[in-house]
Simulated scan of single mutants.
Amino acid sequence: MTQSIRWLQDEIAGRMLQKLDIVKLEAKDVLLIPDFPGAHAPFLTKRFPGIRFHCAPESELSSFELYKLRLTRFWNSKMKSTAVVSLNDYMKTGRINLPSNSVDLVVSVLLIQNLADPKQFLKECWRVLKEGGLLTLSYLGPDTAKELKSESLAQQLQIENLPSPWDMHDMGDALLGERFSDPVMDMEFLKLNYDSDALLLSDAKALNLLALNEKNQAQLPQLPSKLTLEVVYGHAWALGKHLAKPQDHVAYVDPNQIGRKTSSDSA
C-alpha cells in the first residue's frame, strides 16, 4: 500500500471503527498492523481512554515519516512506552514481534489480501491477543477491480492477482479454524470513479492490482472510468485461550481445568 491511496485507508479504517460502537470491550493495549498516519488512532484514544499503541508501520514510510509516526503514537499513548513492530520482519518470518497475550485489540486495515498465508496471520493475532481480546480487520475481496478482468483487457494488462483472494465466508471459516469465537463478517462494494487513466492507474498500482512500468504503460488500451472495490470487514474474539489445546483435531484439557463436582452442584 502506498501513500497515493492513503485516503482509502483512512476511509476504510473509519468504517471499521464505527462498527466497534456496539462492541463492549475494555482495551488498554492495541496493535495497529499496518499503522499509518490517519484518523484511526485519535478515534481509538477517544473510545478507549488511556490506551497504549503498539504499531507496525508501513514499510513505504520514509525515515522522517517513521520518526513522526512513532512520536505521534508515543503522544497518543500519553507518553507510555510502546512497541514498534516491523512489518517487513513479519513478512519474512510470519511472526509478530510481541509477547503472547500482550494486547487487547488488533486492528488490521487492508493488509490480508497481500499476505501469502492469512492463516498464519490469524494464528499470530490469536497468540498476541489476551483472553477476551478482539481482532478487527478489513481487506480486499476477490471481486475487486473486476472491470480490469474482462477478457479484452486481461489480455493486454499485467493484472496482479491478490495473493489471498478470500471472500467473507472464507475468512469466517478460517477464523473459526484458528479458534476465534463469534466471528462477524460483512462486505460492501465501493465504486471509485476516475476522470483520467493516470489516476486510475495510480490507484490500481498502489493497491497492487497492476504491475506497470513506463514502457508497458504507454501501450495500454482504453481503460474503464471506474474501479469496484470489494471490501470485507470482520471481527472475532479470543475466548477460552487456556481451556483446551487442540492437536490433530482433538482437544486436550489440562486436569487442573476440570471442575470438581460437589454435592451443592448436584442439588
Score class of each variant (00 low, 15 high):
Gln158Arg: 11
Gln158His: 14
Ile159Tyr: 15
Ile159Phe: 15
Ile159Lys: 04
Glu160Tyr: 02
Leu162Tyr: 13
Pro163Leu: 10
Ser164Lys: 00
Trp166Asn: 12
Trp166Ala: 07
Asp167Glu: 11
Asp167Gln: 08
His169Leu: 09
His169Val: 13
Met171Leu: 15
Gly172Ile: 07
Asp173His: 10
Leu175Tyr: 10
Leu176Pro: 12
Gly177Trp: 10
Glu178Gln: 13
Glu178Val: 12
Glu178Lys: 08
Arg179Trp: 13
Arg179Thr: 13
Phe180Ser: 09
Asp182Val: 07
Asp182Pro: 00
Pro183Cys: 06
Pro183Leu: 10
Met185Arg: 02
Asp186Leu: 06
Met187Glu: 09
Met187Gly: 02
Glu188Val: 14
Leu190Phe: 15
Leu190Ser: 10
Leu190Cys: 08
Lys191Val: 12
Lys191Phe: 13
Lys191His: 14
Leu192Lys: 08
Asn193Ile: 09
Tyr194Leu: 01
Asp195Lys: 11
Ser196Gly: 11
Ser196Cys: 08
Asp197Cys: 02
Ala198Met: 09
Ala198Asp: 15
Ala198Lys: 12
Leu200Gln: 03
Leu200Gly: 06
Ser202Met: 10
Ser202His: 05
Ser202Asp: 15
Asp203Lys: 00
Lys205Phe: 00
Lys205Ser: 14
Ala206Glu: 11
Ala206Cys: 08
Ala206Phe: 06
Leu209His: 01
Leu210Ile: 06
Leu210Pro: 11
Ala211Asp: 14
Leu212Asn: 08
Asn213Val: 00
Asn213Lys: 03
Lys215Phe: 05
Asn216Gln: 11
Gln217Lys: 13
Gln217Tyr: 00
Ala218Cys: 03
Ala218Ile: 07
Pro221Trp: 02
Gln222Pro: 01
Gln222Met: 07
Ser225Gln: 14
Lys226Arg: 11
Lys226Leu: 07
Leu227Asp: 01
Thr228Ser: 15
Thr228Gln: 03
Thr228Phe: 00
Glu230Pro: 00
Val232Thr: 10
Tyr233Arg: 06
Gly234Phe: 03
His235Val: 01
His235Lys: 08
His235Gly: 04
Ala236Met: 09
Ala236Lys: 06
Trp237Arg: 15
Ala238Glu: 01
Leu239Ser: 11
Gly240Ser: 05
Lys241Ala: 10
Lys241Ile: 05
His242Met: 07
Leu243His: 14
Ala244Pro: 01
Lys245Tyr: 08
Lys245Ala: 09
Lys245Phe: 09
Pro246His: 05
His249Gln: 10
His249Asn: 11
His249Cys: 01
Val250Glu: 07
Tyr252Val: 14
Tyr252Ala: 05
Tyr252Asn: 07
Val253Asp: 04
Val253Ile: 15
Val253Ser: 04
Asp254Phe: 03
Pro255Ile: 05
Pro255Asp: 04
Asn256Met: 05
Gln257His: 12
Arg260Phe: 13
Arg260Thr: 12
Lys261Met: 14
Lys261Phe: 15
Lys261Asn: 04
